[in-house]
Amino acid sequence: MQVFLSYREDEEGKEYASALREELAILGINAIMASRSIRPGAVWAQTILGHLEASSALLCIASRGYTDSAWCQQEIGWAIGRGIPALWVCYDSKERSVGFLMDKQDLTVPDPSSQADTARAIGTWLATQEKTREEARATFIHALAGSSTYRQTRDIVHVLATLDSLTDDEWQQIDKAAETNRQVREAHSYSERNNRMSGMPVTDWLRRQLNKSADNTWPPR
Rank of each mutant, 00 (worst) to 15 (best):
P112V: 04
S37Y: 10
G65H: 04
R221T: 04
L49A: 11
E22F: 12
I26Y: 06
D168P: 09
D92T: 07
R151D: 13
E135N: 11
T139P: 06
A121Y: 00
A127V: 06
A161E: 06
A143L: 06
E53S: 13
A121N: 05
L58R: 02
Y66D: 01
V109K: 03
A79I: 10
G83F: 10
D117G: 05
L58T: 04
W171S: 01
S55Q: 04
P220M: 11
S148Y: 04
I174E: 05
T203L: 13
R193T: 12
I84Y: 03
S35C: 01
W44H: 14
V89C: 00
Y91E: 00
D204L: 14
Q209K: 14
G41T: 02
T149V: 11
G28F: 04
S56V: 07
V184T: 03
G199S: 09
A86Q: 05
A62S: 06
S213E: 12
L49Y: 11
R133D: 08
L107Y: 04
P110V: 02
R96G: 02
H158W: 12
D10L: 09
A17T: 02
G123E: 05
M197H: 14
L24P: 02
Y190M: 03
M33K: 07
H142V: 12
E53M: 11
R137A: 07
L206V: 01
R185W: 14
Q129K: 15
T67R: 15
W88V: 01
Q46V: 13
P220C: 09
R221H: 07
Q209G: 13
W125G: 00
H142S: 15
